[in-house]
Computed example of a mutant assay.
Amino acid sequence: MNLADVPLRPGSAELLPVRGVRAREIFDNRDWVAVEIPVALEFNGIAHAVMLATPTDLPDFALGFALSEGILLGRNELYGIEEEYAPEGITLKLEVASAAFARLKERRRSMAGRTGCGLCGTESLAHVARTLPPLPPGPALSKSAVARGMRELASLQVLQKVTGAVHAAAWCTAEGEALLVREDVGRHNALDKLVGALAKGTLAASTGFIAVTSRASFEMVQKTVAAGVPLLAAVSASTSMATAVAQETGLTLAGFVRGDDLVIYTHPGRLNGLPANAGGFQQCM
């Protein structure tokens, strides 16, 4: 396959010269490299955060970030997004309702995002966790649906297949069909893009689940709960803080979802065949 003919999203990757060794032979070639640039977010003219991101689906990213961070309580509080391009990066200028802007000023965070970061630049411990409403029961799901969703997510990662450098997040139906997929160099960014796409669309977020290609960190759990999705399936492990938040909010948290295998950290009763106390399951604090 000629990589130059792969249908990539504009701006998501670029061909760069590389030198390597295969079978003890040195080679020179060109290879696809995922684009990573600074993306700044401004709210009503006030700079708030700078993230390193892949410059695709930026309106989804801006909306999803604002919703998952609790700056916006709903899409109706966003009046518009303007994209400003400069040699050093892209600025997303969001015009938001006065109530949202007041909310932002109350819990202002100065952040410098990195692709592997968790809570970069948070000003105080009080800003780490925020109160989220508990999730409704949601649909009964099956282990096979979760496995299907993860498989479909992998098959739909166009940028990852070409560059090997990005994460992805997908919203899947209760049957495991991946209907929305977003990719980015940062796992948080990919999930924010997905949250924004869900908010803009007509899909009922609470009727399905989210699958991600990363570990289930605290922020990934918090963003999933904020989106009203009852189950998060991750290809890698959970953390203690993520597990505690998932337990408190009613999120079913699944990790190590690989093939037909998985590990359930919280609320296993939402999955068919896994009653809440099966096998001596211990409820997390």
Results as ranks from 00 to 15, higher is better:
Ile46Asn: 04
Val33Tyr: 10
Ile26Thr: 15
Tyr79Arg: 12
Arg75Gly: 00
Gly89Phe: 09
Gly80Pro: 00
Ala126Tyr: 07
Arg114Tyr: 12
Ser124Phe: 00
Ala86Ile: 06
Leu52Ile: 14
Gly116Met: 14
Gly45Ala: 01
Val33Ile: 09
Arg109Phe: 02
Gly70Arg: 12
Thr122Glu: 05
Ala126Ser: 10
Ile81Tyr: 00
Leu119Ile: 14
Phe27Asp: 14
Ile46Phe: 07
Asn76Glu: 13
Ala66Gly: 07
Tyr79Thr: 07
Gly89Leu: 07
Asn76Asp: 15
Leu119Cys: 14
Pro87Gln: 04
Thr56Leu: 01
Val33Ser: 13
Leu119Arg: 15
Pro59Tyr: 04
Pro55Met: 05
Glu69Ile: 03
Leu67Pro: 02
Glu106Pro: 00
Glu83Asp: 11
Ala100Val: 03
Glu106Met: 11
Thr91Val: 12
His127Lys: 09
Gly113Pro: 05
Ala49Arg: 14
Ala99Asn: 14
Met111Phe: 04
Glu83Tyr: 08
Ser98Glu: 15
Ile26Gln: 15
Glu25Pro: 04
Ala23Asp: 15
Glu25Lys: 15
Thr54Gln: 04
Ser68Thr: 10
Leu78Cys: 00
Asp31Val: 14
Glu84Phe: 04
Ser98Tyr: 09
His48Lys: 08
Thr56Trp: 00
Arg75Glu: 06
Gly64Gln: 05
Pro59Gly: 05
Val96Thr: 07
Gly45Thr: 07
Trp32Asn: 05
Val96Trp: 02
Glu123Trp: 06
Val33Asn: 11
Leu41Phe: 04
Leu58Tyr: 05
Glu42Ala: 06
His127Val: 03
Gly70Val: 02
His127Ala: 08
Glu42Ile: 03
Lys93Tyr: 03
Arg75Asp: 00
Phe27Arg: 15
Val50Tyr: 05
Ala40Asn: 11
Cys117Arg: 08
Gly80Phe: 03
Phe27Ala: 06
Ala97Phe: 07
Asn76Ala: 13
Asp57Asn: 11
Gly64Asn: 03
Trp32Ile: 04
Ser110Gln: 13
Ile37Val: 12
Ala34Arg: 10
Gly64Arg: 03
Glu88Lys: 10
Ala47Ile: 01
Met51Ile: 12
Pro38Met: 00
Ala102Val: 13
Glu82Gly: 05
Arg30Ala: 05
Val50His: 06
Ala102Pro: 08
His127Arg: 13
Thr54Lys: 07
Phe27Val: 04
Arg24Ser: 14
Phe101Tyr: 13
Ala126Pro: 01
Arg109Ile: 08
Leu67Val: 03
Leu58Met: 06
Met51Cys: 13
Ser68Phe: 04
Ala40Met: 08
Asn29His: 13
Ile46Ala: 09
Met51Val: 14
Ala86Leu: 08
Tyr85Glu: 13
Leu78Met: 02
Leu41Met: 09
Arg114Thr: 12
Asp28Pro: 09
Ala49Tyr: 10
Arg107Met: 00
Pro59Leu: 03
Gly121Thr: 02
Ala62Gln: 11
Lys105Thr: 13
Ala126Glu: 06
Ala100Arg: 07
Arg103Asn: 09
Val96Asp: 01
His48Thr: 10
Gly70Ser: 03
Val39Thr: 10
